[in-house]
Simulated assay, not measured.
Amino acid sequence: MTKIDPSLYLSNQPSRSPSPELGKDEFLKILMTQLQSQDPTNPMDDREFISQMAEFSSLEQMMNMTNSIDTLVQSQLVSPVIKYSHMIGKEVTYQAYDEETGEKLDIETSKVIAVSQKDGWAILELENGEKIYADAAIQVSNPDSSENNGEDPTDPENPEDEESE
């Protein structure tokens, strides 16, 4: 008696899960099958065929646009300039160093006026003329909050607010 090869059993075959999405390849296969199995005495209407081709073209254009938008979004997420652009106008506190000796100087605070990029790292350009790496900032704050000494400028109890009226 002949034996059946166990590798041919269905349980040994890799499982395939059907995709819930209909892509352009699947659409073309369905269209070609439809054309091949149509009744020769009653062929598909020209308008219906043109409509299906227009749908296919529209689907392909939408897929290309989606890929382009995804690429754009990914490139913006990676860019350090865009990532740190929200810091423009903020005050940063950082450890200053002597460029020649590398010796630590005082801790300084200055306003960010621009963000640039060097070798993939974000560089904060400061109002005092310094340029520091974004990760060298010790503290980031709004310049408005430090000038008011913690007082709310819209607070009716604030005497400065009454003088300005």
Rank of each mutant, 00 (worst) to 15 (best):
S17L: 00
P18W: 02
P20A: 05
P20I: 06
P20R: 04
E21L: 14
L22D: 06
L22M: 14
L22W: 04
G23H: 05
G23R: 08
D25V: 09
D25K: 12
E26Q: 15
E26G: 14
F27R: 02
F27M: 10
L28V: 14
L28T: 12
L28E: 09
I30A: 10
I30D: 01
L31V: 10
M32Q: 15
M32Y: 11
M32T: 14
T33R: 13
T33F: 13
L35I: 13
L35C: 07
L35G: 04
L35W: 05
Q36A: 12
Q36H: 09
Q36D: 15
S37M: 10
S37D: 08
S37Q: 10
S37Y: 09
Q38G: 02
Q38K: 01
Q38I: 04
Q38M: 06
D39L: 12
D39H: 12
P40W: 03
P40F: 05
P40R: 04
T41M: 13
T41S: 14
T41V: 09
N42Y: 05
P43G: 03
M44K: 05
M44W: 05
M44N: 04
D45I: 07
D46F: 09
D46E: 12
R47N: 11
R47Q: 10
R47C: 00
R47I: 07
E48C: 03
F49V: 11
F49K: 08
I50C: 07
I50E: 10
I50P: 01
Q52R: 14
M53L: 15
